[in-house]
Simulated assay, not measured.
Amino acid sequence: MKLLAIFIILACGSNLGSAAERDAAITENELIRRTQELYDAVVPGDQAPWKKYFADDSIFADEKGRTMDKPKLIADITPLPAGYSGAIKLERVQSRIYDNVAILSYDANETETIFGQNLSARYHITDTWLRRDGNWQIVASQAHRYYEDPAVGKADPKKFPDFIGSYELASGQTRTVVADGDSLFVERNGKKEQLFPETSELFFRKGIEGRILFRYDKDGKVDALIDRRNNEDVIWRKVANK
């Protein structure tokens, strides 16, 4: 009888241990629920979920290039100003869940209304969750913003003759600007790309970060094409017509 009692106790203890382990596990749906809870707290500036789900030693890198520890992250969670509203929703979620580590990677689609004007932005975020003493918290989070082309403005074809011509970066490295009706193009090494106007003198190529602008000299003539990338300029000097 004693042996039977010991066996029953051991079996019950084993079942309790298994139940505790199951309770400590986490699912993709639970990660999504917690993450959505975080973003639902952004608009009202509710810091409680961020304090709860981010570990004290967490690292947070946002889409602006800032890297923050938990105190700085929490301090950054403040209510939107009066006249502002919005929401952030998760989409295209992927997860990898292991014994004590879970990774959640997803798109965060943001909509914002500023005094009746609607804005939107898309981010991709990857969170790393770690289980410590049965408690799952984020230890690292990194976000980047998807590039979006600016709105197409109105070109001024009367200015195209100023822009048309060849531009040289270095010996043997040239690109040519040509016009076709009301559209402007840049050609290099047989590749032709349309320059879409943001303003009459500021252009962009679809799907490519940066801007193309034309520099005027003191005499009012275009002397360079500027390829502006992340606020840094690559200057192509205009080649005089022969």
Rank of each mutant, 00 (worst) to 15 (best):
A155C: 03
A140W: 00
R122Q: 04
R145A: 08
I97V: 05
S120N: 13
K158T: 14
Y147H: 12
G134R: 00
D156C: 07
A151R: 11
I125E: 13
Q117S: 12
Y147D: 13
S105T: 07
S95W: 03
E110V: 15
K154G: 13
N118C: 05
I103D: 03
P157A: 01
S95P: 05
N109S: 12
D156N: 14
R96A: 14
Y147V: 14
A102S: 05
I103N: 02
G153H: 06
E110Q: 14
W129H: 02
Y123D: 12
A155F: 01
W136S: 04
Y147F: 15
Y146P: 00
K159S: 14
H144M: 10
R131K: 09
T111H: 02
N109M: 14
P150K: 07
T128K: 10
F160H: 03
R96I: 09
T126L: 02
I97Q: 04
A155Q: 01
W129V: 11
I125D: 11
W129I: 08
Y123K: 03
T113F: 00
G153E: 08
S141G: 09
Y123I: 10
Y98C: 08
Q117N: 14
S141P: 03
I138F: 06
I114Y: 07
V152F: 10
N118P: 04
Y147C: 11
E112Q: 13
R122C: 01
S95L: 05
E148K: 09
V101W: 04
N118D: 15
T113K: 00
R122S: 06
S120I: 06
N100A: 11
N135I: 15
D156Y: 06
Q94G: 06
I103C: 01
E148C: 05
G134N: 02
N100D: 15
P161S: 04
F115V: 11
N100V: 11
V152Q: 13
R96S: 14
K159E: 14
Y98G: 11
Q142L: 10
A151I: 15
A121H: 08
D162I: 07
A140P: 00
L119H: 12
V93D: 04
F160Q: 03
E148T: 12
Y146W: 03
N109P: 09
R131C: 03
P161I: 02
S141W: 01
P150R: 07
I138R: 06
Y106S: 10
T113S: 10
T111E: 09
T111K: 00
D156W: 02
K154M: 15
Y106E: 07
T126D: 10
A108C: 08
